[in-house]
């Protein structure tokens, strides 16, 4: 029964690098969604974690009741997240666009409503997304990773690359970037802000729900599953620089990697301490984060 210690500590570093990049990719996906909304609308949506959680539940529902094919469930969840984003923008955040403190209060209220809503609908037990093919273990010497690890990395890479193409090549993406830089000037050239804002929220919701649907099969689906990504996603945004999509991506990956590797050298319960110490050190050197730039109107 005894299991030999790893021949090389380097293997532990590699194992944690893979785990860290995988979690970091999920944080990045989460952070990018928040950054889009903040960059375009100056809305800080703390309920983004609730949409992430909704993505997990939608994936479970799709696998159980719509189609057992995982890619179909991913699309279902992503579309569901986009719809939730649209509803949130239209019913809540459009009215609170200029009021940051009310945005925060509203999004905290939305978190409570969402978490207790799923408790009523799905019960208190955490749900397991049944996808045996995703659980298949791939062996690499002493190391073992599930297929889902690779699926997460691939899906996040595709999502981020698609977003980049959308923002840089499509008319709508360029309109979003224009609105994020100067809403009045965007209006002057014929961009309809309400439409841009609605699409931004839909896109943000889709990315959050995709994150929840990707993480669900690996771990569990439960009401609080968006809490940790919210904390780490916000940290990634600050680390990468508020308003920078690539900053959010790199911030998320850096946090995932750092917290995973830190556990090899410090007690596991100190990993958040390591992450936040690194964040503070970065902000002391670069107050706007790694890729942050001055925002118009800010001192």
């Amino acid at each position: 029964m005894a299991f030999p210690a790893m021949a090389f500590p380097a293997m532990a570093v590699i194992a944690q690098a893979v785990n860290g990049i995988m979690m970091g990719a999920v944080y990045a996906l989460f952070a990018v969604g928040m950054v889009l909304v903040f960059g375009v609308m100056r809305v800080l949506n703390f309920a983004h974690g609730a949409v992430f959680m909704a993505g997990g539940y939608l994936c479970w529902f799709a696998m159980a009741h719509v189609s057992p094919i995982y890619p179909v469930a991913l699309l279902f969840s992503t579309a569901g997240g986009a719809a939730i984003g649209l509803v949130l923008e239209r019913l809540v955040f459009r009215r609170l666009r200029e009021n940051l403190s009310m945005q925060i209060v509203a999004s905290l209220g939305l978190i409570l409503m969402a978490q207790n809503g799923v408790l009523l609908l799905f019960g208190a037990d955490a749900l397991q997304i049944e996808a045996p093919s995703l659980r298949r273990v791939l062996r690499l010497g002493e190391l073992g990773f599930t297929v889902q690890h690779l699926v997460i990395l691939a899906a996040v890479a595709v999502a981020v690359a698609s977003l980049h193409v959308f923002l840089s090549r499509s008319r709508l993406g360029i309109a979003m970037r224009a609105a994020s830089q100067d809403i009045q000037a965007a209006r002057v050239v014929g961009i309809a802000p309400d439409r841009v804002f609605a699409i931004t929220f839909a896109l943000s919701g889709a990315l959050a729900a995709l994150g929840g649907a990707l993480l669900g099969p690996l771990f569990l689906v439960f009401p609080g599953m968006g809490d940790l990504p919210l904390l780490k996603g916000l940290t990634a945004i600050v680390l990468g620089g508020m308003g920078s999509v690539w900053g959010a991506v790199l911030g998320g990956l850096a946090i995932g990697l750092l917290e995973a590797e830190a556990t090899l050298f410090a007690p596991t319960d100190y990993r958040d301490l390591v992450v936040f110490a690194a964040l503070i050190a970065t902000l002391l050197l670069r107050p706007r984060g790694l890729f942050g730039t001055a925002i118009r109107g800010e001192p």
């Binding site: 532990a12 002493e142 596991t268 990993r271």
Partner: peptide, 8 residues
């Protein structure tokens, strides 16, 4: 992280 540390 625990898995890696236990193995090590």
């Amino acid at each position: 992280a625990h898995v890696s540390n236990i193995r090590r």
